[in-house]
Structures are given as C-alpha cells and as structure tokens.
Design a protein around this nucleic acid. Structure first.
Lengths: 148, 148
DNA sequence: TTTTAAATGCGACTCATTCGCAACTACGGG
DNA sequence: CCCGTAGTTGCGAATGAGTCGCATTTAAAA
C-alpha cells in the first residue's frame, strides 16, 4: 500500500536521477534535509542542517539548489506572512496543495487542505483561461488560543 | 450614488484624520500617490512618484508610511510571485479581496474576484477557528496569450 | 503663540540573496 | 578504469530591500 498524502522518502533524489541532473555530495545533503524536514525551513536553517551532513556545503550552493528545486517544481516557496523577517521558507511539494495560516500573535503556522481551494483554482483556470503552475494562499490572523 | 467597488478618492487621508494620525506634507504626497496609482507599486516607484509631488520625501519616510498603512489595514502587500525581484508591491485595500495572477512569461498581472474565494475564507474561519486579518492568494502560471 | 510629542532626512547599517571566478568533480566515452 | 569536460562548487565581494539612530523639524493641542 503506498503512502497516501506524501511522496516516498528519497523521492527528490530519484527526481534528479530521472531528469539526468548531476548528483553531488552537497546536493545529496541538501535534498536529504528537505526530505526529512518536519517544518518549514528558511535558507539559513537549511544550510545549518545540511552542513551537519556535509560540512563543506556553502550558502551559495544552498541558494542555487533551492533555485533548481523551484525550477523543477519540487518545492514551494513561502513567506509565512513575513512573521519572522523578510526571508523565505521552503517545503517539498506534496500531492495536495495546502493553505498556510500564520498567527500574528504567537507565530504558529497551521496548514489546511480544502476542496474549496481546489475548486477555486479550477475556476481560475476555466474562467480566466489561465494555466496555473504554482499557487500560494497565505493567511494572517489569530489562532484559536490567541483569539481569546 | 456611491461608488460601488472602490473607496472614494481622498479616503486614505480621511482615514488618517478620523484616527487622529498626524498629517504631514510628506504623508500627503505618499497617500496621494497610493490613491491615484493605476497599478501595483513597489517602494522605489512609490518614492519616485511621491518626490514629484514633494521633493523632500525620503526613502525611510516611504517605508515608515507603508508600515503605518499596513498596521491600519489600509493597504495590501503583494509579492506578485517575485516576478521582478524580491521586493514587495502595494495597493490600497478595496472592499473586495481579490486574487492576483502573474504570468510567468509576459509578466502581466491579472486580478480576479471570486465568491468561491470568500467561501474558502469563511471555511477557514469556521473549520479552523482562525480569525482572519489578512489573506493573500497569488498564482503564477501562463496567461491566455502566452499559453499558446 | 508656545510647547512638545511625533515625524522627518540623513547616513550608516543589517540581512537575504546573487554573482564572478578559479578550482573541483561527476560521469559518459574511450 | 581513467580521462576530458561541462557542470558544480566555495569563496568573497557585490547588490538591493528594508531598518535604525539621532539630531532637527513640524503638526497641532493647549
């Protein structure tokens, strides 16, 4: 039985192999971090984690690899409403798009999958005759506990 | 008969007066630019236009005024999928939220108002018990002409 | 007016990201 | 299995957006 919502571990590396993209020590480290990350990482966090697997990984390589992953549609880039500065966050693209909610008070990030979101995207593709490649819905507000 | 979809011109200045926010030469220039802009402006463009009305306007004042406008919920901050660099774009918040579509080939920005989007936000507020303050849906892809 | 808290300009600073280039390396063909 | 080479890397410098501290100016309340 295959995993339902997520791709298999190691899948990013497999993608690279399939498309004939050269695999290096440094990329292996970076991809492994992306594959096993339990939360949204920014470039600096990704760098630190990748360096624990291969100390030679450099900041520019992280940025270059992120560009590569973006170009191939393998990751999503998020702002998380700029709650912690101007940088970006990254996560591997899974099967289902999801909405990101950021609590403006406690900073908690919540994800939410919705059929209505899917319907909305279909409507855009149809009514606007716009071919969607990537979409990002971010919401800022107050989570349940902080609303009180 | 009031204007249906947009706020009245001069409305940003009125908001400032209502809330007892101090009005200065420089803010007047910046607000006027925001009120009359025909497209999404980034901070640098806003600065240049404001300086045409009041040459003394400084970059920091533009950024400080943008922060003020954001804090008061009078403008929306957009990335437009980072089609032109890492900066942000701004537009005055009108009555209806709308989706921004950015063509990855020609760079055209299209706006789209959708009831389904409203329904989606209601769903998030209800199902996630999340109090929405600000939301941003940006879509990257190919517009009708560039799809061919 | 006078007073004063708020706002400004200026320049220096931070921070995320990009770039140029010489050195290194993955990997297909011999 | 090694070689050649195009692709990749590390390094350090550069860029660009946005922020900050501080002395000066100013809006507007008294």
């Amino acid at each position: 039985m295959p995993l339902p919502q997520t791709e298999m571990p190691g899948r990013l590396q497999a993608h690279f192999a399939d498309r004939g993209i050269r695999m290096t020590q440094q990329r292996r480290a970076i991809l492994r971090v992306m594959e096993t990350a339990n939360k949204h990482l920014d470039a600096a966090q990704l760098l630190r984690r990748a360096q624990r697997l291969d100390a030679s990984v450099d900041r520019s390589t992280v940025y270059r690899t992120l560009q590569l992953l973006k170009r191939h549609g393998l990751i999503d880039e998020l702002d998380l409403m700029h709650i912690h500065g101007e940088g970006h966050y990254y996560e591997r693209k899974l099967n289902r798009d999801h909405i990101h909610m950021a609590c403006l008070r406690c900073g908690k990030i919540t994800e939410f999958v919705s059929d209505i979101f899917e319907k909305l995207k279909s409507q855009v593709e149809k009514d606007c005759r716009f071919r969607i490649v990537v979409s990002r819905l971010e919401i800022g507000g107050y989570c349940t506990t902080c609303s009180k």
